[in-house]
Write a protein that binds this DNA or RNA. Structure first.
Lengths: 219, 219
DNA sequence: GCAGTTTATTTGTGATCACATATTAAGGGG
DNA sequence: CCCCTTAATATGTGATCACAAATAAACTGC
């Protein structure tokens, strides 16, 4: 049974979905590793029906791949695919940042500062899984201020696809330092400099491409 | 039972998915109209299980909305949502066009010409459903040449969300003329002018925003 | 006639099962 | 020792059912 995810009121299939999704994002599934319906169902003590719904939903969101015979597995990341997804992020995320900038008040900024300092901790302790998850939350928090749900959903679907792979990337990096564009973003936000914010976001996205070098699956 | 969709080998849930998806894209469901699991299942002469999977998949792809109580319905389109989706298209589709341009050979161009002339017919006869579907195929054909599956999937998910609404928009327009950016795109393609192609695509996307004026749902 | 309440009906959810196919393990021939 | 065949096992698919909640309909009192 997966970590501390409470089960209050929400439907079973939704709970299974969140549990599995969290596991995928945290790197709990190695790329190419299969997830079977019966295995998932018995492990989480539910029936096959909600397990199937959760898996299919993740497949629809491309957080899982499906073989022609119907087996679901954690997706592999090729260089070409990652470049495409990075290009999409580079196009969409600055647009989201531009929308968020005017809506950013003090509470948001302090929240982002808290999240960023936590990220530094994770980086220092080398906790790759926590870093990836925290990084996703940082971006999601910023984009929430954009008040653009459709656009945000698009970006989130990209994060869902790259998340497990980034877990591997940061795992390889260990405690190595990397440029802190988050600080630059927060600084731009306090100055209400939308263009600088967008630029910081773009740089952050680009950096991911550099870091990923050499971690790709063949083909 | 929906039109001429054969049932060769493919799993039932997939067939139901495609059938329902086609219906949604063609405007067969009015915005806000509900689709019930039992209704869909009995109509297509299948059990509830594949019907449920198809509906949930469409919900995951945002081609259907789901109420908090679990009822699925055709999505409503607000101005804000459409503007977001149009912005995303405006960012992503030119990028796809840029990638497609160098890969475009004669067979692709002639195929696009055929598709475009068919579009003119549909516009002349005022067949809005056929126009929307044909327009989607035109763009999909062009972007296929980009050889960027991840990026294309992202764009297709936007089309899936805007499709039913565009059906309404073109239905309102009737046989009214609109600027033919498709011809401009084809012309740019023959000249191997990638920038001009991207510009034509951008203009085509922008035009949709103008046309949609006044067709939005409240709130 | 109408608003609030109560009853009927419809609907989504989750579980269990049979069946066909895919995957893996075992066995045998070169 | 490796490859091909065959048996055993695991897996996805689709159907059916019971249950609770939500929606629609009927009804009552005013």
């Amino acid at each position: 049974m997966d970590a501390n995810t409470p089960r209050a009121g929400i439907p079973t299939h939704d709970w299974v979905y969140r549990t599995l999704r969290r596991r995928i994002m945290g790197g709990g599934l190695a790329p190419g590793e299969a997830v079977t319906l019966r295995g998932l169902a018995t492990e989480l003590a539910v029936s096959m029906t909600p397990a199937r719904e959760a898996v299919r939903r993740l497949v629809a969101e491309r957080a899982l791949e499906m073989t022609p015979t119907g087996r679901a597995m954690a997706p592999r990341m090729t260089r070409a695919r990652f470049e495409e997804l990075t290009e999409a992020r580079e196009l969409l995320e600055p647009a989201l940042a531009l929308r968020a900038a005017p809506n950013a008040g003090k509470p948001l900024i302090s929240r982002l500062k808290t999240l960023d300092s936590r990220l530094d901790d994770h980086m220092a302790t080398g906790d790759a899984a926590a870093y990836v998850e925290g990084n996703a939350i940082f971006h999601a928090t910023l984009y929430e201020a954009a008040e653009a749900p459709a656009l945000s959903a698009l970006v989130e679907s990209i994060w869902l696809q790259t998340g497990p792979f980034m877990r591997v990337v940061y795992g390889r990096l260990g405690t190595q330092n990397l440029a802190d564009y988050h600080a630059a973003a927060i600084s731009a936000l306090t100055r209400r400099d939308a263009a600088a914010l967008a630029q910081a976001v773009r740089a952050d996205v680009r950096q991911a491409l550099t870091l990923a070098e050499g971690a790709f699956d063949p083909a």
